[in-house]
Amino acid sequence: MEAAGGDESMDVQEPSVSGHRRTSAKPVWTSLEEAVQMKTEGNAFYKEKKIRSAIGRYHRALLVLRGLDSDVMASVKGFGPEIPALTPEQEASLRSTQVDCYNNLAACLLQKPSVDYSRVRDYSLRVLKWRPGDVKALYRAGVATLEMGDALTAKQYLTQASREQPNDANVRRNLQRAEEKLSRDLQKERAMYRGMFPSGVKSSAEEGMNQTHRASGEALAGQLNAPNEASN
Protein backbone atom coordinates (compact mmCIF):
# COMPACT_ATOMS: atom_id res chain seq x y z
CA MET A 1 0.00 0.00 0.00
CA GLU A 2 1.23 3.46 -0.82
CA ALA A 3 2.15 5.68 2.09
CA ALA A 4 -0.22 8.38 3.26
CA GLY A 5 -0.20 11.67 1.43
CA GLY A 6 1.38 13.40 4.42
CA ASP A 7 4.74 11.94 3.44
CA GLU A 8 4.68 13.85 0.20
CA SER A 9 4.56 17.29 1.77
CA MET A 10 7.16 16.60 4.45
CA ASP A 11 9.99 19.11 4.24
CA VAL A 12 13.52 18.63 5.48
CA GLN A 13 13.32 20.64 8.70
CA GLU A 14 16.00 21.83 11.07
CA PRO A 15 16.47 19.64 14.16
CA SER A 16 14.14 20.57 17.00
CA VAL A 17 15.54 23.09 19.47
CA SER A 18 13.57 22.86 22.71
CA GLY A 19 16.16 24.11 25.19
CA HIS A 20 16.53 20.64 26.76
CA ARG A 21 19.45 18.37 26.08
CA ARG A 22 18.57 14.90 24.91
CA THR A 23 19.79 12.17 27.22
CA SER A 24 20.74 9.69 24.51
CA ALA A 25 21.57 9.47 20.85
CA LYS A 26 21.86 6.62 18.39
CA PRO A 27 25.34 5.43 17.45
CA VAL A 28 26.56 7.06 14.25
CA TRP A 29 26.63 3.87 12.20
CA THR A 30 23.13 2.95 13.36
CA SER A 31 21.78 6.27 12.09
CA LEU A 32 23.71 5.98 8.82
CA GLU A 33 22.37 2.48 8.25
CA GLU A 34 18.84 3.64 9.06
CA ALA A 35 19.12 6.42 6.48
CA VAL A 36 20.49 4.04 3.85
CA GLN A 37 17.61 1.64 4.53
CA MET A 38 15.07 4.44 4.07
CA LYS A 39 16.77 5.47 0.84
CA THR A 40 16.62 1.87 -0.38
CA GLU A 41 12.91 1.69 0.44
CA GLY A 42 12.43 4.96 -1.44
CA ASN A 43 14.17 3.52 -4.48
CA ALA A 44 11.85 0.51 -4.41
CA PHE A 45 8.77 2.75 -4.21
CA TYR A 46 10.10 4.84 -7.09
CA LYS A 47 10.53 1.77 -9.29
CA GLU A 48 6.94 0.83 -8.48
CA LYS A 49 5.90 4.40 -9.46
CA LYS A 50 4.68 5.10 -5.91
CA ILE A 51 6.08 8.59 -6.01
CA ARG A 52 4.52 9.93 -2.81
CA SER A 53 5.87 7.03 -0.78
CA ALA A 54 9.32 7.43 -2.34
CA ILE A 55 9.37 11.14 -1.53
CA GLY A 56 8.45 10.39 2.08
CA ARG A 57 11.28 7.88 2.49
CA TYR A 58 13.89 10.19 1.00
CA HIS A 59 12.80 13.06 3.25
CA ARG A 60 12.95 10.85 6.31
CA ALA A 61 16.42 9.62 5.40
CA LEU A 62 17.59 13.24 5.10
CA LEU A 63 16.07 14.11 8.47
CA VAL A 64 18.09 11.33 10.09
CA LEU A 65 21.26 12.53 8.38
CA ARG A 66 20.79 16.13 9.45
CA GLY A 67 21.45 15.10 13.04
CA LEU A 68 24.90 13.87 11.98
CA ASP A 69 25.82 16.72 9.66
CA SER A 70 28.30 19.01 11.39
CA ASP A 71 27.40 21.86 9.02
CA VAL A 72 23.79 21.72 10.28
CA MET A 73 24.39 20.92 13.94
CA ALA A 74 26.85 23.76 14.41
CA SER A 75 23.91 26.18 14.34
CA VAL A 76 22.13 24.41 17.25
CA LYS A 77 25.16 23.63 19.38
CA GLY A 78 24.28 23.35 23.07
CA PHE A 79 20.69 22.18 22.55
CA GLY A 80 21.39 18.48 22.15
CA PRO A 81 24.04 15.85 22.75
CA GLU A 82 27.39 16.55 21.21
CA ILE A 83 27.79 14.43 18.10
CA PRO A 84 31.16 12.75 17.76
CA ALA A 85 33.41 13.73 14.90
CA LEU A 86 32.71 11.44 11.98
CA THR A 87 35.41 9.22 10.62
CA PRO A 88 36.31 9.74 6.93
CA GLU A 89 34.34 6.59 6.09
CA GLN A 90 31.28 7.81 7.99
CA GLU A 91 31.54 11.25 6.39
CA ALA A 92 31.70 9.64 2.94
CA SER A 93 28.64 7.52 3.70
CA LEU A 94 26.74 10.57 4.98
CA ARG A 95 27.45 12.67 1.89
CA SER A 96 26.83 9.82 -0.54
CA THR A 97 23.43 9.09 0.98
CA GLN A 98 22.51 12.80 1.05
CA VAL A 99 23.49 13.20 -2.59
CA ASP A 100 21.50 10.14 -3.65
CA CYS A 101 18.42 11.28 -1.74
CA TYR A 102 18.47 14.80 -3.16
CA ASN A 103 19.07 13.45 -6.67
CA ASN A 104 16.20 11.01 -6.29
CA LEU A 105 13.90 13.65 -4.81
CA ALA A 106 14.47 15.80 -7.90
CA ALA A 107 13.62 12.80 -10.09
CA CYS A 108 10.44 12.18 -8.09
CA LEU A 109 9.27 15.78 -8.34
CA LEU A 110 9.68 15.70 -12.11
CA GLN A 111 7.25 12.75 -12.20
CA LYS A 112 4.44 14.68 -10.50
CA PRO A 113 1.57 16.16 -12.56
CA SER A 114 2.36 19.63 -11.20
CA VAL A 115 6.11 20.14 -10.94
CA ASP A 116 7.74 22.52 -8.46
CA TYR A 117 10.71 23.44 -10.64
CA SER A 118 12.28 25.68 -8.00
CA ARG A 119 12.62 22.71 -5.66
CA VAL A 120 13.93 20.50 -8.45
CA ARG A 121 16.62 23.09 -9.12
CA ASP A 122 17.40 23.50 -5.41
CA TYR A 123 17.82 19.76 -4.87
CA SER A 124 19.96 19.46 -8.00
CA LEU A 125 22.24 22.31 -6.93
CA ARG A 126 22.73 20.64 -3.55
CA VAL A 127 23.91 17.55 -5.39
CA LEU A 128 26.30 19.61 -7.51
CA LYS A 129 27.73 21.25 -4.38
CA TRP A 130 28.90 17.87 -3.10
CA ARG A 131 29.30 16.03 -6.41
CA PRO A 132 30.32 18.54 -9.10
CA GLY A 133 29.77 17.25 -12.61
CA ASP A 134 26.98 14.82 -11.69
CA VAL A 135 25.26 14.38 -15.04
CA LYS A 136 21.78 13.70 -13.69
CA ALA A 137 21.91 16.77 -11.44
CA LEU A 138 23.21 18.93 -14.29
CA TYR A 139 20.41 17.70 -16.55
CA ARG A 140 17.67 18.25 -13.95
CA ALA A 141 19.06 21.64 -12.96
CA GLY A 142 19.03 22.57 -16.64
CA VAL A 143 15.46 21.41 -17.22
CA ALA A 144 14.19 23.15 -14.07
CA THR A 145 16.02 26.38 -14.85
CA LEU A 146 14.70 26.35 -18.40
CA GLU A 147 11.14 25.87 -17.21
CA MET A 148 11.65 28.78 -14.80
CA GLY A 149 12.51 31.01 -17.78
CA ASP A 150 16.31 31.32 -17.54
CA ALA A 151 17.41 29.80 -20.83
CA LEU A 152 20.98 31.13 -20.60
CA THR A 153 21.76 29.38 -17.30
CA ALA A 154 19.86 26.30 -18.45
CA LYS A 155 22.02 26.10 -21.54
CA GLN A 156 25.17 26.10 -19.42
CA TYR A 157 23.94 23.22 -17.26
CA LEU A 158 22.72 21.23 -20.26
CA THR A 159 25.90 21.88 -22.23
CA GLN A 160 27.94 20.40 -19.38
CA ALA A 161 25.60 17.41 -19.21
CA SER A 162 25.90 16.98 -22.98
CA ARG A 163 29.69 16.85 -22.78
CA GLU A 164 29.40 13.91 -20.38
CA GLN A 165 26.49 12.20 -22.17
CA PRO A 166 26.66 13.31 -25.83
CA ASN A 167 24.29 10.60 -27.01
CA ASP A 168 21.55 11.18 -24.44
CA ALA A 169 18.40 12.12 -26.37
CA ASN A 170 16.76 13.95 -23.46
CA VAL A 171 19.84 16.09 -22.86
CA ARG A 172 20.09 16.97 -26.57
CA ARG A 173 16.38 17.76 -26.83
CA ASN A 174 16.35 20.12 -23.84
CA LEU A 175 19.62 21.74 -24.89
CA GLN A 176 17.98 22.46 -28.25
CA ARG A 177 14.95 23.91 -26.44
CA ALA A 178 17.23 26.24 -24.47
CA GLU A 179 19.05 27.35 -27.61
CA GLU A 180 15.77 27.96 -29.44
CA LYS A 181 14.44 30.07 -26.56
CA LEU A 182 17.66 32.10 -26.49
CA SER A 183 17.33 32.66 -30.23
CA ARG A 184 13.71 33.80 -29.88
CA ASP A 185 14.61 36.11 -27.00
CA LEU A 186 17.46 37.60 -29.02
CA GLN A 187 15.17 38.24 -31.98
CA LYS A 188 12.69 39.99 -29.69
CA GLU A 189 15.44 42.20 -28.27
CA ARG A 190 16.66 43.08 -31.75
CA ALA A 191 13.14 44.01 -32.79
CA MET A 192 12.83 46.17 -29.68
CA TYR A 193 16.12 47.95 -30.44
CA ARG A 194 15.08 48.55 -34.05
CA GLY A 195 12.02 50.36 -32.76
CA MET A 196 13.95 52.43 -30.22
CA PHE A 197 16.91 53.75 -32.21
CA PRO A 198 17.33 55.70 -35.48
CA SER A 199 18.69 53.67 -38.37
CA GLY A 200 22.17 55.19 -37.99
CA VAL A 201 22.74 53.66 -34.56
CA LYS A 202 20.90 50.36 -34.98
CA SER A 203 23.96 48.33 -35.88
CA SER A 204 26.08 49.60 -33.00
CA ALA A 205 23.26 49.03 -30.53
CA GLU A 206 22.71 45.48 -31.77
CA GLU A 207 26.44 44.76 -31.63
CA GLY A 208 26.53 45.99 -28.04
CA MET A 209 23.61 43.73 -27.24
CA ASN A 210 25.37 40.73 -28.80
CA GLN A 211 28.54 41.46 -26.83
CA THR A 212 26.52 41.62 -23.62
CA HIS A 213 24.97 38.21 -24.34
CA ARG A 214 28.38 36.69 -25.08
CA ALA A 215 29.95 38.18 -21.96
CA SER A 216 27.08 36.94 -19.78
CA GLY A 217 27.40 33.44 -21.20
CA GLU A 218 31.17 33.35 -20.70
CA ALA A 219 30.92 34.61 -17.11
CA LEU A 220 28.26 32.06 -16.25
CA ALA A 221 30.27 29.25 -17.83
CA GLY A 222 33.23 30.21 -15.66
CA GLN A 223 31.09 30.09 -12.53
CA LEU A 224 29.66 26.67 -13.36
CA ASN A 225 33.08 25.21 -14.12
CA ALA A 226 34.59 26.45 -10.84
CA PRO A 227 34.97 23.48 -8.42
CA ASN A 228 32.60 23.14 -5.45
CA GLU A 229 30.93 26.50 -6.03
CA ALA A 230 27.31 25.48 -6.66
CA SER A 231 25.11 27.24 -4.12
CA ASN A 232 22.43 25.74 -1.93
Rank of each mutant, 00 (worst) to 15 (best):
Y139C: 03
H20M: 10
T145S: 08
Q37D: 07
R95K: 14
A178D: 03
T212C: 11
R121E: 15
Q13Y: 05
G5D: 14
L65P: 00
A25H: 07
L86N: 06
D134A: 05
A178S: 10
S70L: 03
Q13L: 12
N225G: 01
L94N: 03
L65S: 03
R52A: 08
L186N: 12
C101P: 06
T145K: 01
R163H: 13
W130V: 02
S9V: 14
G142F: 02
Y102I: 00
S183E: 13
Q98M: 06
K26M: 07
E14D: 10
N170R: 10
P84C: 09
P27G: 07
E82H: 04
F197C: 04
R60V: 02
T40L: 07
E91R: 15
K50R: 15
L105D: 03
Q156E: 13
A35R: 05
M1K: 09
D100C: 06
P113R: 06
E218C: 05
A141G: 15
N210D: 15
D168A: 05
E41V: 10
E48S: 10
G217M: 13
A61L: 12
E164S: 11
N225L: 12
K26L: 14
F79A: 11
A230W: 12
T87R: 08
K47Y: 07
N228P: 03
P113H: 06
E91H: 11
A35F: 10
I55S: 03
G200S: 13
S183P: 04
E147L: 09
A178C: 08
S203C: 07
A215V: 07
R52K: 11
R95I: 15
A85P: 03
E207W: 13
A35Y: 09
R194M: 10
S118W: 08
C108M: 04
V120A: 07
R52W: 04
M209A: 06
L125I: 00
A107W: 05
L32Q: 00
D122N: 11
A161K: 01
L86W: 11
V127C: 06
R22W: 12
M192F: 08
